[in-house]
Amino acid sequence: MEEQSVHPSAYGLILSLAWYAQRPWKTSDARLVLEDGSIWRAKSFGVSGTQVGEVVFNTSLTGYQEILTDPSYAGQFVLMTNPHIGNTGVNTDDEESRCCFLASLIIRNLSIWCTFTSICFNTSNWRCSETLDDVNTRAITRRLRQDGSLIGVLSTEESKTDEDLLEIARRWKIVGVDLISGVSCDAPYEWTNKTDLEWEFQKNQSFGENLHVVAYDFGIKHNILRCLASYGCKITVVPSNWPASETLKMKPDGVLFSNGPGDPSAVPHAVETVKVIIGNVPVFGICMGHQLIGQALGGKTFKMKFGHHGGNHPVCDLRSGRVDISAQVRMSGAIST
């Protein structure tokens, strides 16, 4: 019998057809109850149970795997405004951390089609505390835009009444809660992996060659570390509670205070660490780290109405007037006093 060849672009389709036949996840009836009293009924395709978190929306058209594995979303339900999620499956290259940290993923429609020519797994392999689809995400987004982020409870448990879930939502608070201790590493480690050359914008550049950077892990994303490694830096990642005195003993060329979840005012120990290091070593911060630097210098942070979550946020350079489109994940702002 003549062997039939398969075009590489068909591999993803074949895998998808196999998954479609198997449907590797089970759905169950679920309710999303928001603290404003609204109730949204849909289907859960993740684990069963009851979970509470802050509901925010993300405007990215793709990148859901990075969102699922971004530690900055710990304690939050992420609602995707793009109605189709799962089109490209997930893969081993796009993970931003060691596991899924967000509390729930809320989507309009779960796609089981995957057309990657590389190895591709289904999104159901990534387990949040809860995952919800077949819900009116546009209506919820409009409500969040109007009223601000809301605490929500997602449940598949029929024994709990709507009133029970509403009470849980109204009792739970995210402000004042230390979330970085739950996502940080436990011990220092060295990072050496670089950005793949096909994704590297500054090829063959070694801006940071031989520079030692100590990175505080408040929920750091792998891509940040890959970028630093691509510039030639030696990187030591340390836990969020790592003493400043131990960092200074390493005599680094710079210290990075990373992104992370939750309320920056809820981690005064991190602010104290920043205070000790500032002035002794050059520092830079991203997201949570930037806000901690602001507090260490006497500023204050405040909770934004619904935050910035997505890959299409414009930022204007006031000196040149140039506008760049940025990816952002933040719920707090910083002001000087």
Score class of each variant (00 low, 15 high):
residue 1 M to S: 14
residue 5 S to P: 00
residue 5 S to F: 07
residue 5 S to E: 10
residue 7 H to I: 09
residue 7 H to V: 13
residue 7 H to K: 14
residue 11 Y to F: 14
residue 11 Y to K: 11
residue 12 G to S: 08
residue 14 I to P: 00
residue 18 A to E: 15
residue 18 A to I: 15
residue 18 A to K: 14
residue 24 P to I: 05
residue 27 T to G: 10
residue 27 T to Q: 14
residue 29 D to A: 11
residue 29 D to I: 01
residue 32 L to W: 05
residue 34 L to R: 08
residue 36 D to K: 09
residue 38 S to C: 09
residue 39 I to V: 15
residue 40 W to S: 01
residue 40 W to P: 01
residue 48 S to C: 04
residue 55 V to I: 14
residue 59 T to F: 00
residue 61 L to I: 07
residue 69 T to M: 02
residue 78 V to R: 01
residue 79 L to H: 00
residue 82 N to F: 07
residue 82 N to I: 03
residue 83 P to W: 09
residue 84 H to R: 12
residue 84 H to Y: 11
residue 85 I to T: 10
residue 87 N to K: 10
residue 88 T to Q: 12
residue 92 T to R: 10
residue 92 T to S: 11
residue 93 D to K: 15
residue 97 S to C: 07
residue 98 R to L: 09
residue 100 C to I: 14
residue 103 A to H: 03
residue 104 S to H: 05
residue 109 N to D: 15
residue 110 L to F: 09
residue 115 T to P: 01
residue 119 I to V: 14
residue 123 T to K: 06
residue 125 N to H: 09
residue 126 W to I: 12
residue 130 E to W: 02
residue 132 L to P: 02
residue 133 D to T: 12
residue 135 V to C: 03
residue 136 N to F: 01
residue 138 R to Y: 11
residue 139 A to H: 08
residue 141 T to R: 15
residue 143 R to A: 12
residue 146 Q to N: 12
residue 149 S to A: 14
residue 149 S to H: 03
residue 149 S to T: 13
residue 152 G to L: 03
residue 153 V to H: 00
residue 153 V to Q: 00
residue 161 T to G: 07
residue 163 E to V: 11
residue 166 L to V: 04
residue 170 R to C: 12
residue 171 R to M: 09
residue 176 G to L: 09
residue 176 G to A: 06
residue 176 G to D: 13
residue 177 V to H: 05
residue 180 I to M: 08
residue 182 G to Q: 14
residue 182 G to Y: 06
residue 183 V to F: 06
residue 183 V to Y: 05
residue 187 A to D: 14
residue 188 P to Y: 06
residue 190 E to A: 12
residue 191 W to I: 03
residue 191 W to V: 03
residue 192 T to Y: 06
residue 196 D to Q: 11
residue 197 L to G: 07
residue 201 F to D: 13
residue 209 E to G: 07
residue 211 L to D: 07
residue 213 V to R: 02
residue 214 V to I: 13
residue 216 Y to K: 02
residue 217 D to I: 00
residue 218 F to D: 04
residue 219 G to R: 02
residue 222 H to D: 11
residue 223 N to C: 08
residue 229 A to L: 12
residue 230 S to T: 13
residue 232 G to R: 05
residue 235 I to L: 15
residue 242 W to I: 01
residue 244 A to P: 01
residue 244 A to G: 14
residue 246 E to A: 05
residue 248 L to K: 08
residue 249 K to H: 10
residue 250 M to Q: 15
residue 255 V to T: 04
residue 259 N to E: 15
residue 264 P to G: 06
residue 264 P to H: 06
residue 265 S to K: 08
residue 266 A to E: 04
residue 268 P to E: 14
residue 269 H to G: 10
residue 273 T to L: 08
residue 278 I to S: 08
residue 279 G to V: 03
residue 280 N to A: 08
residue 281 V to D: 05
residue 282 P to C: 00
residue 283 V to I: 15
residue 286 I to M: 08
residue 290 H to K: 09
residue 292 L to N: 02
residue 293 I to G: 00
residue 295 Q to G: 00
residue 296 A to S: 10
residue 297 L to F: 04
residue 301 T to Q: 08
residue 301 T to I: 02
residue 302 F to W: 07
residue 306 F to K: 08
residue 311 G to L: 02
residue 316 C to M: 13
residue 317 D to K: 07
residue 320 S to I: 00
residue 324 D to T: 10
residue 327 A to M: 09
residue 332 S to K: 07
residue 333 G to K: 01
residue 334 A to M: 13
residue 335 I to V: 15
